[in-house]
């Protein structure tokens, strides 16, 4: 197992390098000049040129790339062109906020999704099943942005129960994490349902029942344990969805996370911050994937990586 993890971590290096190169060129190929944006619409050509020189944007691309890689190896992601603050500090003050939002959403999604999925499967074709799967269908189809606005309208403007936007207290976390959790909850519950249904038809479940186990024990110890493998895959994949969703959710709820930082930085063509943020997201993604693969082995003894 240890060897496997080390191998996977080593494999991550070329992947991250590829991500870095790709992002470096993608942001620069995007139309728009950071210097023009920074200088404002009424600035003169000379003022814009000055900013270009100060940001080293007047250098050829390969020189810029060389500088970037040289600094990157030393752990320096450069400075934001917008705020002039080091990119690492910009990102690291934001990342925990995104993480707390994602983890809360993930916890909600897994808890609610798996529970609903299991109940739906056990009580297949019941009213609960039909209702839950209908709600799940709506959940999958609902754009996060729109849902966020609806939640805000209802709970903040109409009822005045929760703050509409911002951060600072646990109350601020509720609406954005619900908005963010909706799609994964729906997907996880549908996945769990079908997976549990499939397992329930297996022979060993019949055996378990016939040896007189209580139904709860059959479901939780025997069925769910085997049904959970595909669910773990989906939960892992949802981490990606959550990152995408976080960009929108953070914008709607004004949550000071990485997603909003990325949107602001892309609009301002703040190359160093975009590069740093994407790099961090790639690291998170690789980490989550690795974690999912390790979890497989732990949940299913048939899977061995040695």
């Amino acid at each position: 197992m240890t060897n496997y993890v080390i191998k996977r971590l080593l494999l991550a290096v070329p992947v991250l390098f590829g991500v870095v190169i790709l992002v470096f060129f993608m942001v620069r190929l995007t139309p728009g000049d950071p210097a023009v944006i920074m200088a404002g619409e009424q600035a003169s050509e000379a003022e814009i040129e000055l900013i270009r020189v100060q940001l080293k944007l007047d250098q050829p691309l390969h020189i810029q790339l060389g500088l970037f890689l040289e600094n990157l190896i030393q752990g320096d992601l450069g400075r934001s062109t917008r705020s002039r603050a080091p990119v690492t500090s910009e990102i690291m003050t934001r990342f925990p906020n995104t993480l707390i939002l994602m983890l809360t959403a993930m916890a909600i999604a897994t808890l609610v999704g798996v529970t609903t999925g299991v109940i739906s499967a056990v009580k297949q074709y019941s009213f609960f099943d039909a209702a839950a799967m209908f709600v799940a269908l709506i959940g999958i189809s609902m754009p996060v942005f729109w849902l966020g606005l609806l939640l805000m309208l209802y709970f903040s403007v109409n009822l005045g129960l929760l703050p509409a936007a911002g951060s600072g207290t646990w109350k601020h976390l509720i609406l954005p994490s619900i908005a963010l959790a909706t799609v994964p909850t729906a997907i996880i519950s549908r996945m769990t349902r079908s997976s549990v249904l499939e397992v329930l038809r297996q022979d060993y479940i019949r055996t378990a029942r016939s040896k007189g186990l209580r139904e709860n024990a059959v479901i939780i110890q025997h069925a769910l344990k085997n049904a959970i493998i595909p669910v773990i895959t989906v939960v892992g994949l949802q981490a990606g969805t959550l990152m995408g969703g976080a960009v929108l959710t953070e914008s709607v709820f004004n949550w000071p996370g990485l997603g909003r930082l990325m949107v602001d930085s892309i609009l301002a063509r703040d190359y160093p911050v975009v590069q740093g943020a994407v790099l961090l997201l790639a690291v998170v993604f690789i980490f989550v994937n690795l974690l999912v693969d390790i979890l497989y082995a732990l949940f299913d003894p048939r899977i061995r990586y040695d």
Binding site: L149, M152, L153, V157, P163, G166, S251, V252, N254
Partner: peptide, 18 residues
């Protein structure tokens, strides 16, 4: 000073009293 680029967020925050 809070920064709220989304118009609807700004309006909801005002109406909600934030």
């Amino acid at each position: 000073f809070e920064f709220m680029p989304e118009v609807s967020t700004r309006v909801a925050a005002l109406q909600g009293g934030d």
